[in-house]
Design a protein around this nucleic acid. Structure first.
Length: 436
RNA sequence: GUGAGUAUGGCGAAGUGGUUAACGCACCGGAUUGUGGUUCCGGCAUUCGUGGGUUCGAUUCCCACUACUCACCCCA
């Protein structure tokens, strides 16, 4: 029979990834740390759907953002509803907040989430079509203390993760009053010299003038200096100005390492006032966040301020690895049952079951390997003990226990083997820590 | 969406217009009879992403497609 090869059956969709054993441990570690920090900051987990009505993102994230214009995974379901795989986490959380009337609760909603996000983009280093974010949102307060809490949360998490040289870059993008004013000022200064700007910046001038500050083109930077284009910070209204001052003061108070970056822009339309990114020098941004005071009302809820941040798991892990701080773990094996004689296979199966029921991790060979090969296999998985069952042991009702680290071998009665290993395990401090 | 590069066994990686496609790692087996990290010996791609074309002949040349990688835009 000719084997038919259908690539699609053995190829994952573009921009997706399989997390294989070995890598998954890293993810679990990150999630564990994130959850632990969430607990100490008193945030609660929320899980929202991975898809929402397309309109939510269009309205929430912003019609003119790249995400909405060209990156959404949008599809129609059988009821002709337009749905979209979530490209970010905030919109869904805010929707859930409104729909479930969490604003009726006596306290602020302090929420965290972890999960997959989707954006239709060309994959490249640290960028996927399905990627994963952890993030937090606080709804119901416009106090600068809350901005600071959220920034401190992020800084602490990234540090605990093991990332070195993490830095918070902080800016204020103003509010619905001062932002248009800044935009106008910039356009006014740059419009007359627009033809001298690079092609990208010419389109930025229409879409998001602030981004011109980000241009890597030196000539564009020169033009900015020449026309004395104002930064947002210079255009802040009094209220935004005092909010920003409070945030930076408190950050210092709390001891969060940060720098003010008055050119920092964020990609989503909903940000107001404080906006920040966590960067690691030499690498890309690992997380970003900001305040979004208009978003809840924007999607139809009561006027409610919010702040939040989110980071990419793939990116954090990537930087961690490149900094050489990645840790590798393997699930430990206490007992490898080796069959020295085919006659003993049945007994081995029984022994294996007893060990496992007693909470001792145990495995064996199923491929008919010779004893030597079994020892080798046990060594390779770094088993603590090899339990040998052969003709002799069968006859005498015993099992030979070999300690692979020391090479010592003892004979133990078969009906005592479980308690024997349990005792060894307890006294040596080896703990089986697979949780249910 | 734009631009560039790559595509050889499980992994890494040579290679040539022409009968047998290096090598390393990994893996499997063996070095007399039931014992593991070393050493030695042996095994392991009728095949060089897919489909066409050029040619007497292509894994090596050309085209298309697909995938991957990197950069830009943008972002996590």
């Amino acid at each position: 029979m000719v084997k038919e090869v259908i690539p699609v059956l053995t190829q994952r969709p573009r921009g997706t990834a399989d997390l294989l054993p070995g890598e998954v441990e890293q993810w679990k570690r990150l999630e564990d740390i994130f959850r632990a920090v969430s607990r100490t900051y008193h945030y609660q987990e929320i899980r929202t759907p991975v898809f929402e009505h397309t309109e939510l993102f269009a309205r929430g994230v912003g019609e003119t953002t790249d995400i909405v214009e060209k990156e959404m995974y949008t599809f129609e379901d059988r009821g002709n509803r337009s749905l979209t795989l979530r490209p970010e986490g905030t919109a869904g959380v805010v929707r859930a907040y409104v729909e479930n009337k969490l604003y009726g609760l006596p306290d602020l909603a302090k929420l965290y989430y972890v999960g997959p996000m989707f954006r239709y983009e060309k994959p490249q280093k640290g960028r996927w079509r399905q990627f994963h974010q952890y993030g937090v949102e606080v709804l119901g307060s416009e106090a600068p203390e809350v901005d600071v809490e959220v920034i401190a949360f992020g800084a602490e998490f990234l540090t605990k993760l093991g990332l070195k040289d993490v830095q918070a870059e902080v800016n204020s993008v103003g509010c619905s009053e001062c932002r248009p004013r800044h935009r106008e000022a910039m356009v006014e200064k740059l419009r007359p010299v627009a033809d001298r700007l690079c092609k990208d910046c010419q389109s930025r001038l229409d879409r998001n003038p602030l981004r011109i500050f980000d241009c890597k083109n030196e000539s564009c930077q020169a033009i900015l200096r020449e026309v004395e284009a104002p930064t947002v910070l210079q255009c802040l209204c009094d209220a935004c100005q005092s909010h920003f001052s409070a945030v930076t003061e408190l950050l210092q108070e709390v001891g969060v390492r940060f720098v003010i970056n008055d050119r920092l822009v964020r990609g989503l339309d909903y940000y107001t006032r404080t906006a920040w990114e966590f960067t690691v020098p030499g690498y890309s941004t690992v997380a970003g966040g900001g305040r979004y005071n208009g978003l809840v009302a924007q999607i139809g809820g009561p006027e409610t301020p919010g702040v939040g941040f989110a980071g990419g798991i793939e990116r954090a892990l990537l930087v961690l690895q490149e900094q050489g701080a990645a840790v590798t773990e393997r699930s430990p094996l206490t007992a490898y049952v080796a069959v020295a004689d085919a006659q003993a296979s049945q007994t081995a199966t029984k022994l294996l079951q007893e060990l496992r029921c007693a909470g001792i991790s145990a495995d064996r060979d199923y491929q008919g390997k010779g004893l030597k090969a079994q020892l080798k296999a046990a060594d390779r998985v770094q088993a603590k003990y090899v339990l040998i069952l052969g003709e002799e042991e069968l006859k005498s009702g015993t099992v030979s226990v070999k300690d692979l680290a020391t090479g010592e071998q003892v004979t133990v009665a078969r009906n005592e083997i479980v308690s024997y290993l349990s005792d060894l395990q307890n006294s040596s401090g080896v703990v089986e820590h697979d949780q249910m």
